[in-house]
Design a protein around this nucleic acid. Structure first.
Lengths: 83, 83
DNA sequence: CGTGTAAGGAATTCTGACACG
DNA sequence: CGTGTAAGGAATTCTGACACG
């Protein structure tokens, strides 16, 4: 399920996070949603799982930079290719 | 994949149909998307497949009422419970 | 660093109706 | 019957910034 189909509002519901948090993780290159012509972000279920795992790591004390490194080394459960 | 997560715009892209057509099939009780608090419709991948099958039947000459009956009799590939 | 918020604008979606046929 | 469209409004999302720390 890596089709980018849902809006950020739905991702908020599924993850329990705020739009701000989700957009910030993108800024930190931990996720990379698609964009519609009108610039609105579209996420996949894989993105949702990835976001949940990011949040777990954050709770464990990692910062976004460290999580980025873990991801680069394949140390995360949810594999993901970030642009 | 019966989680209602995508907006009608995405369904249009995935099916090639217009918003008008998709809303009409709902009016004819062939599909039943969820609604957000703000009333915007949310569809699942199952809805998308169901819409594709509806369109196939339309092309084969069935009208919405007949398709509704086919569905009621379990004669469609995509099973679906419509409110 | 990570996140909340108010601000203004742009994209998305909604409903009810008129049109054609 | 099934679908297009213009109309006006409401919900959704966007960006850049200020704030706290």
């Amino acid at each position: 399920m890596n089709e980018k189909v849902m809006g950020i509002g739905m991702v908020c519901e599924l993850t329990g996070l705020s739009e701000r948090q989700i957009r910030y993780y993108e800024e930190r290159q931990l996720i990379s949603p698609d964009r519609t012509q009108g610039r609105t972000r579209k996420y996949s279920f894989e993105d949702v799982e990835r976001i949940k795992e990011i949040q777990q790591k954050m709770n464990e004390g990692f910062n976004t930079f460290e999580i980025r490194q873990l991801a680069a080394k394949g140390r995360l459960t949810i594999k993901y290719s970030c642009t």
